[in-house]
Amino acid sequence: MIQQDVIKVGMADLKWATGGANLRTTGLGSCVGLTLYDPVARIAGMAHVMLPSSEIARESTMNIAKYADTAIPELIGQMKASGAAVGRLVAKMAGGAQMFAFSGQSDSMRIGPRNVESCMEILVNYSIPVLGQDTGGNYGRTIEIDSSSGVLTIRSVQFGIKEI
């Protein structure tokens, strides 16, 4: 059997892969794992987005992979530079859960759903269709995308393995 390369995407990180390699990110809670795929060039990209908007950034050197509104354009740019066509890109995403729920919650604790909404909005702006998503709920997920097929595998403790 051929060993498949698995490239790890960290938290607030983004990467792309081609040539049959897989991209994987672990422990998505309220974070969103957003993947883009060009089925013709067979290039896959993944961003582990932590927060919805860079407007709230207070850091001195901003990590653009952390915010939905900066990570997605950057990922598209990198994939384009490596041979993907923006017009062919399709998106899938997972995550955006709310790990713990309380009544009367402040907005900052609703970060999961807001991450998903923000990613959606940006994808609409780029006219990138969302082929599938597994978002929300109150559980963690680990995801892996295959750059040869664009299949996104989602694993969680409660629901096992799921493919979209």
């Binding site: 938290m11 998505l28 809670g29 900052s108």
Partner: peptide
């Protein structure tokens, strides 16, 4: 303390939940 909440899940997503306030100011 607020009312407690319990979960059985992966450690990563659970702990990240408590780090969000830090997200906007660093890594």
């Amino acid at each position: 303390p607020s009312v407690p909440s319990v979960a059985r899940d992966m450690a990563g997503p659970i702990l990240t939940y408590g780090l969000m306030q830090y997200g906007e100011m660093g890594d």
